[in-house]
Amino acid sequence: MMMLELAGLRRCFDDVVAVDRLDLALPAGCLVGLLGANGAGKTTTLDLLATLLAPTAGTARVAGHDIRTEVMAVRRKLGYVPEHGAVYEGLTAREYLELAALLHDLDPQVGLGRAERILAHFALTGVLDDRLASFSKGMRRKVLVTAALLHDPPVLLLDEPMDGLDVASQRRLADLLVQLAAGGKTVVYSSHVLQQVEEICQRLVLIHEGRLLWHGEVADLRREHGGAPLTDIFLRMTHQDSGSTVAWADLLGGGA
């Protein structure tokens, strides 16, 4: 069974087409890297799958549920770590995670037990009763990842999940994602850091200006491009020049 199926998915913001007729199918048990330049439509795609946005046209199914018509069922089946990382800052980590457990219909005690173990995995202990307002960016990110995993969802969407994490936590999260995929979950990992994506993902989805450019195994992509580094392949496929060397004085206008 395909856990994520996108069929002609399209989203426009007024006169801007952010996602343009995306077709894609991802099975259970895969860890997919979602790549694209700034403004390519990665976050919009994830927001559509997470039911934060309604599609302008087309649709998608998450774990068999339509994002247009079965919103609550979709939300029960997925965990999402958004890029912006917004939380209720006035709540403590315990209150926030209790709320997450309650709204995912988990027993609060069971949920808190899980949360403590997941946070401990990320070396975040003894702060459950601190306000989230006092947390650093990385600490918040760990709490968001914990909230996304709390209900053991079959589909996991992560938008720049490593942002703000220290090296050890990045390693722990990467290992955990590989383990989750091996256990049958579908994990979509969006990032700008190509090395990280290449390191942990077996498959890649490359989008450019809202359209699907390429989808398949990382090894196949590199083989097609003669074993070139992923960065070079990405720049070539998205028609971006890595940029010739420019003198700073020229950028300042020649007066410096």
């Binding site: 209720y88 800052e89 006035g90 709540l91 209150e95 926030y96 709320l99 309650l102 709204l103 306000r131 307002a133």
Partner: peptide
């Protein structure tokens, strides 16, 4: 009631702390 009142408690707490902050 359990979900709505739990959510309302969290929202109220958030509003109070934001004022304090």
């Amino acid at each position: 009631p359990v979900r709505v009142l739990g959510l309302a408690r969290a929202l109220r707490r958030e509003a109070q702390v934001q004022l304090q902050l």
